[in-house]
Simulated assay, not measured.
Amino acid sequence: MSKTDIQERIELLRGELNDLADRCGITSAVVLLKSQELDKQLNEYRRMAGKGD
Rank of each mutant, 00 (worst) to 15 (best):
E44D: 09
V31D: 03
Q41P: 02
D22P: 00
G50F: 04
Q36G: 00
Q36P: 01
E8K: 12
L38C: 04
M1N: 10
A29P: 13
V30T: 14
C24E: 09
R47Y: 03
M48C: 00
G25I: 05
G25C: 08
D19G: 04
D39N: 11
D53W: 14
I26M: 10
R9W: 12
N43H: 07
I10S: 03
D22A: 11
T27C: 01
Q7Y: 12
V31Y: 05
A49I: 10
C24W: 02
Q41L: 13
R14W: 05
L13V: 09
R47S: 03
K51A: 07
I10W: 01
E16R: 09
E11R: 14
R47K: 06
S2V: 06
K40C: 05
R14K: 15
R23W: 02
R47Q: 03
L20I: 04
Q7N: 14
A29N: 13
N43Y: 10
V31P: 07
K51Q: 13
L42V: 13
K51F: 03
S2A: 11
D53Y: 13
E37C: 00
E8W: 04
R47N: 01
L38Q: 04
L20Y: 14
D53P: 00
G25T: 09
T27W: 00
A21G: 03
V30S: 13
K40R: 13
Q41G: 02
D19W: 07
R46D: 11
Q7S: 14
E44S: 03
L33V: 15
S28G: 02
R46K: 12
N43W: 05
L13S: 11
M48F: 02
L13Y: 13
T27R: 06
T4D: 15
M48T: 00
L38T: 04
L12F: 08
G25N: 11
D22N: 11
R14Y: 07
E16T: 07
D22C: 06
R14H: 10
K3Y: 06
R23K: 14
R46T: 09
T27L: 05
E11V: 14
R23E: 10
I26S: 08
R23Y: 03
I10K: 00
R46V: 10
G50Y: 05
D39S: 06
K34T: 12
E8F: 06
M1F: 11
S28Q: 07
Y45C: 07
V30Q: 14
R23C: 03
Q7K: 15
I6M: 08
N43T: 08
R14E: 15
N18I: 05
G15M: 02
E37M: 02
C24I: 00
L13K: 15
D39P: 01
M1R: 12
S2T: 15
C24D: 07
G15I: 00
G15A: 01
A49W: 12
D53H: 10
A49G: 07
G15C: 01
E37Y: 02
R23P: 01
E11A: 15
M1Y: 08
T4P: 00
S28E: 10
E16P: 00
Y45P: 08
I10D: 01
E8S: 10
K34S: 09
Q36F: 02
R23F: 04
K34G: 04
G25L: 08
L32V: 07
R14P: 05
D39R: 08
I10C: 03
S2M: 09
L42D: 01
G50A: 09
